[in-house]
Simulated scan of single mutants.
Amino acid sequence: MDTTKKFTGKADIYSKYRPRYPKEYINYLVSYNNLTSNNTVADIGSGTGILTEQLLDKGLKVIAVEPNDDMRSIAEKRLKNHPKFVSIKGIAENTGLRSKSVDLITVAQAFHWFDKVKFKNECIRILKPNLNVALVWNIRDSSSQMILENAEICKNLCPSFNDFSGGIEETPEEFEQFFRDGKYEYCTFQNDLEYNLDDFLGRNLSASYAPKSTDSNYKEFIKELTELFMKYSKGNKIILPNVTRSYIGKV
């Protein structure tokens, strides 16, 4: 299946329910890369523009590269008034950007969809010399019993489920192969998320593997998630243990 189509029909729910990145991470990203208002960031696989917007709010020029029309359209509507926002239809492996034109490449929740070798070559082409690529994920904390039970529901009812975020955190060799000489800085930021029932369901339904309302397993998926919410919620709220994982290095 063409991975660029994975979120077709899910852009609205993705935009509404996917979490932002913690301020501590954004500040770290800007500081680590010595970014100023004169710098240009290429946000690759930018989706509905969640990270894009947070970078724009730091005064940076951000070129958002996204192949999925549904996702890109939402970002364009939300961010059209930002003077430093540029939207491009392109893929990670062939962005269409000029060679040696950007000061940082960011990839949020998307690296696991890319052809890693081709994307690395594209990063080398479009980055100015000796600058960084930053990969980041908001990932559920798998040490939580509630998260483990959430994963079990997905395993049972979502045929294409392969762990949250594609299990990317369990494959360190992918990062070693991607970054130059296998060297990168790894940091984590606690980013627990408080949800009511609608938010909790929406967050789960925003995943690429989650059933759509027309699928036969949709009602059972909602039923079991609702039962999980009721089991762990207090005062009609649930805390979803979440960690923001950051990988930054040269390629």
Rank of each mutant, 00 (worst) to 15 (best):
T3W: 02
T3E: 07
K5W: 00
F7W: 06
F7T: 07
G9F: 04
G9A: 11
D12N: 15
Y17T: 10
P19W: 08
R20G: 08
Y21M: 14
Y21D: 05
P22C: 11
P22L: 06
L29V: 09
S31W: 07
Y32K: 14
N34W: 07
S37I: 15
S37C: 08
N39L: 04
T40N: 10
A42N: 08
A42F: 03
D43N: 14
G45V: 05
G47D: 06
T48I: 08
G49Q: 04
I50C: 08
L51K: 06
T52V: 01
T52R: 05
E53D: 03
Q54E: 11
D57R: 15
K58F: 01
K58A: 10
G59D: 06
G59S: 13
K61M: 14
I63V: 15
V65S: 05
E66L: 05
D70C: 09
D70H: 13
S73A: 11
E76G: 08
K77T: 11
L79A: 02
K80A: 10
K80Q: 12
N81V: 05
H82N: 15
P83W: 10
F85S: 03
F85I: 00
V86R: 08
I88F: 00
K89H: 06
G90C: 07
E93F: 03
N94S: 13
T95M: 04
G96E: 09
S101R: 07
S101G: 02
S101C: 03
S101F: 02
T106E: 05
T106N: 00
A108N: 05
A108C: 06
A108L: 02
A108P: 04
A108F: 02
Q109P: 03
Q109H: 04
A110Y: 01
A110E: 03
W113V: 00
V117K: 13
K120M: 05
E122K: 11
C123I: 02
I124C: 05
I126Y: 02
I126F: 02
L127M: 09
K128S: 08
P129V: 13
N130F: 13
A134L: 15
V136Y: 01
I139V: 12
R140M: 15
R140V: 14
D141P: 13
S143R: 14
S144Q: 13
S144A: 14
Q145W: 04
M146Y: 07
N150I: 11
K155H: 14
K155G: 07
N156F: 10
N156A: 15
L157P: 07
S160V: 11
F161G: 06
F161S: 13
F161P: 09
F164T: 05
S165K: 11
S165G: 05
G166H: 02
E170L: 12
E173Q: 13
E174F: 08
F175D: 06
Q177G: 12
F178W: 03
F179T: 07
R180N: 08
D181I: 07
G182R: 09
Y186S: 11
F189Y: 09
Q190T: 09
N191T: 04
N191Q: 14
L193D: 03
Y195A: 06
D198M: 08
F200R: 03
L201M: 06
R203K: 13
R203L: 15
L205P: 00
A210L: 06
S213V: 07
S216A: 15
F221N: 03
K223L: 08
L225S: 09
L225C: 06
L228N: 08
F229K: 07
K231S: 07
N236Y: 12
I238A: 09
V243K: 13
V243D: 10
V243W: 05
T244F: 09
T244L: 14
G249M: 12
V251G: 12
